[in-house]
């Protein structure tokens, strides 16, 4: 809170800092690090980067799903989708709050996002082209996110871990509603099944990309694991996701678009094909199908709202004695 937030701006970094021993001891004892604790500058920066990107992902993630609110096929689906997109705004807010305890403001993070200096999950740079895509986002994208977020509830930084507990609890319906959309489509007409298959065809590989580069290419993973920010490696999480999801696709009668996918009884896991890493890096670099549109939308909303925020500050300054 207040004083905790200002405390962390002290950035005296030295191996001999008396706080370091305590920090190491907290990690070793699986205790949470709290904002007021001394922490290495690298730990703080890594967390800010990761939590801000996570927050941005929630907020940018509102767009692809928001794209279908006005066209949802039934009023019940419309209500569910609105509640889900609203939850994502809430989750973005919880995460921005967690990052703010590290001595950065939300305004600053928003600015970095708008300037392309902080990123968000690449998955949201793909367009939603049919109703099935709303199903796929819930089923696959939220499925992948949950795999990751469950791990993050054990993250060493208290505010992030607490935020994740709340988010995981609230998101439990997200994946189910997505799967239910897919199930309804797959039990429907030929046209609906085709819609579902087309959706899976487009969302499968980007979902696998959500877990990031191979462990062998993931340069910062080791440090994050040592700091207990990250608890399971990219490849392990990806395998876990594939093992979980393929039987679900089978149940739906859909074909996963990977000719190399097959059960490996020796490993006790599914073997699967290689991600198109050129596409992966292209999207990270800003050349995905929707990168520019997503940021343009966000910037437009922020700048269109500037006069509203200013008006409310001016009113507060005049009427409640709070200076804007």
């Amino acid at each position: 809170m207040a004083n905790e937030r200002s405390f962390v701006t002290i950035s005296v970094v030295s191996a001999q800092h008396p706080g370091r021993a305590r920090f190491e001891a907290l990690l070793a004892a699986e205790e949470k690090v709290e904002p007021a604790d001394w922490m290495p500058e690298g730990y703080r920066k890594t967390l800010i980067r990761q939590i801000a990107q996570h927050a941005h992902s929630e907020v940018i993630g509102m767009q692809p799903e928001g794209n279908w609110i006005s066209r949802a096929p039934t009023l019940k689906r419309k209500a569910i989708l609105m509640a889900k997109v609203q939850d994502e705004a809430g989750h973005g807010l919880y995460l921005y709050s967690a990052a703010e305890t590290l001595g950065i403001t939300r305004d600053e993070m928003v600015r970095l996002l708008h300037e392309g200096k902080q990123k968000y999950s690449s998955i949201f740079n793909y367009p939603t082209l049919s109703w099935a895509d709303i199903g796929c986002i819930g089923w696959l994208v939220d499925g992948a996110a949950i795999t990751n977020q469950v791990m993050l509830t054990r993250c060493s930084f208290g505010p992030y871990a607490r935020g994740m507990v709340r988010i995981c609890k609230e998101e439990s319906f997200h994946q189910r509603q997505g799967f239910q959309i897919m199930e309804t489509l797959c039990r429907g007409s030929a046209e609906q099944r085709e819609m579902a298959q087309d959706g899976l065809g487009r969302w499968w590989w980007p979902s696998l990309m959500m877990f990031g580069p191979h462990d062998s290419d993931s340069t910062h993973s080791d440090q994050s694991m040592a700091w207990k920010i990250k608890r399971v490696s990219n490849d392990d999480l990806r395998q876990q996701f594939v093992d979980m999801t393929v039987p679900q696709a089978d149940y739906l009668g859909l074909t996963v678009p990977d000719p190399e996918l097959r059960w490996n009884p020796e490993r006790g896991h599914y073997d699967f094909g290689e991600i198109d890493w050129d596409e992966f890096w292209a999207v990270v670099r800003g050349n995905g199908p929707m990168n520019r549109e997503r940021i343009a939308h966000k910037r437009a909303a922020w700048y269109d709202g500037a006069w509203v925020r200013k008006a409310a500050s001016a009113y507060a300054a005049r009427h409640t004695g709070q200076v804007g």
């Binding site: 990761q50 990107q53 996110a145 990031g212 580069p213 890096w281």
Partner: peptide, 9 residues
């Protein structure tokens, strides 16, 4: 996945 985009060189 960490929701964090991998760092470019």
């Amino acid at each position: 996945m960490t929701y964090s985009v991998p760092r470019l060189p």
